[in-house]
Design a protein around this nucleic acid. Sequence first.
DNA 1: GGCACGATCGGCT
DNA 2: GCCGATCGTGCCC
Length: 208
Amino acid sequence: MPDPHDPLPRGFFDRPVLEVAPDLLGRLVVHRTADGDVTARLTEVEAYDGPNDPGSHAYRGRSKRNGTMFGPPGHVYVYFTYGMHHCMNLVCGPPGLPTGVLLRAAEITDGVHLARKRRLAAKSDRELARGPARLVEALAVSRGDDGADVCGDGPLTVHHGTPPPPGLICRGPRVGLRGAADFPWRFWIDGEPTVSVYRPHAPRRATG
DNA sequence: GGCACGATCGGCT
DNA sequence: GCCGATCGTGCCC
């Protein structure tokens, strides 16, 4: 039985994305920086199935932005969106198949004080990493981390943690995607206060 | 607690 | 040009 602090091996990510996504719940993402360490226990994730998935950045093929998704598993794809936010995916599957898991929410289990300094807008600890862009900010992950190996000796790693009992794993529609083509590829831990509320899609921009 | 809306810019058509 | 794998604020229960 693995120690919760053991890192996940690359083989963990070298599986079909719909297998990896629910298995990431309860795992620990650790980022070591000069300021200190922050640990996030994953409570909500979403699978993106590359070429078969209209919601995926990789659906229309490789581009300068999404190149990391086409690389080997166990690396992090970081992208910029809405003109001001970053989100992070963990790349899955064999190299060349651009699948990944978006990390949507987590509970900060270590380094809370540091996370609060990075997330001054958070009114409570549960808001520190509730939402994909908040999670990235709490961990101080940035565009410069795009492509980093999370299975090696680098500052960003994923550890075994404690997976929830299977009965607590829920599954439903993804968040923030426009259009009818959607799939129940969001996974979360039942009863977790850090799980973000479901929104059918981003609100339309107001006219005028 | 929920809901509506503006911010802000890179990537893609 | 258009729009996004979003967030924070303001307002109202």
